[in-house]
């Protein structure tokens, strides 16, 4: 089990540490060569770094770098092909219909306002129980299609969801000591279609 973390900008090192705690090997994807040599496009063959994490950071910055470095299309294709992907905060935004357009959700960016609106919460996460949640200039999910399962809500807003091979959180599990959501991603079967 190996996990590739998109390292274009943002808090990718924090995800590395979480997976290290779980004893899972990771690699960083900074460009197309990294992607091609590390991410296997057909996960069913069982070799290569066949799952990807899109970390928190600035989605506009990551989208720009992703497009300029030619990563947009191959990443999108791999996800549509069933490669498990885990997006946190900016990662959630990037998987939505307005960005990579792979998940049937619409994210509301900076949904809680500027930095003064950043906050911590605790809420139930489906299949796990109560988890600590850190929201930094966070989005929430404002629309979700019928195939999307909402996994957690805070104040009536959906903040975590899953659709087939895609897992997203509006908060940052990588900033807490709780590894259970990362474990959930590790456990997601390679081709969940």
């Amino acid at each position: 089990m190996k996990i590739a973390i998109l390292a274009l900008q943002g808090a990718f090192a924090e995800h590395e540490q979480m997976f290290r705690k779980l004893g899972t090997e990771t690699t960083l994807i900074r460009n197309l060569d990294d992607f091609n040599s590390n991410v296997n496009k057909s996960p069913s063959s069982g070799v290569g770094w066949s799952r990807v994490v899109i970390p928190g950071g600035e989605s506009t910055a990551m989208m720009r770098i992703m497009k300029d470095l030619g990563l947009f299309a191959p990443l999108r294709q791999a996800i549509l092909g069933g490669m498990p992907v885990f997006g946190t905060c900016a990662g959630l935004i990037m998987l939505d219909k307005a960005h990579l357009d792979v998940m049937d959700i619409k994210a509301k960016r900076n949904a809680y306002g500027r930095q003064l609106g950043s906050f911590n919460a605790k809420a139930d996460f489906k299949g796990i129980g109560e988890v600590p949640m850190t929201f930094i200039r966070a989005p929430y999910i404002m629309e979700a299609g019928p195939e999307v399962e909402i996994l957690a809500s805070v104040d009536g807003k959906a903040v975590a969801a899953r659709q087939k091979n895609m897992l997203v959180t509006a908060f940052h599990p990588e900033l807490t000591d709780d590894t259970r959501i990362h474990q959930m991603f590790v456990d997601m079967v390679a081709n969940s279609r």
């Binding site: 900008q9 943002g10 924090e14 910055a61 905060c89 850190t134 930094i136 200039r137 900033l175």
Partner: peptide, 19 residues
């Protein structure tokens, strides 16, 4: 304080970036 931690964490989100 929570606020101090949240503020440090916003800086963490800026890492690998250009201001």
């Amino acid at each position: 304080e929570d606020r101090t931690i949240l503020n440090r964490q916003l800086a963490q989100m800026l890492k690998g970036g250009v201001i």
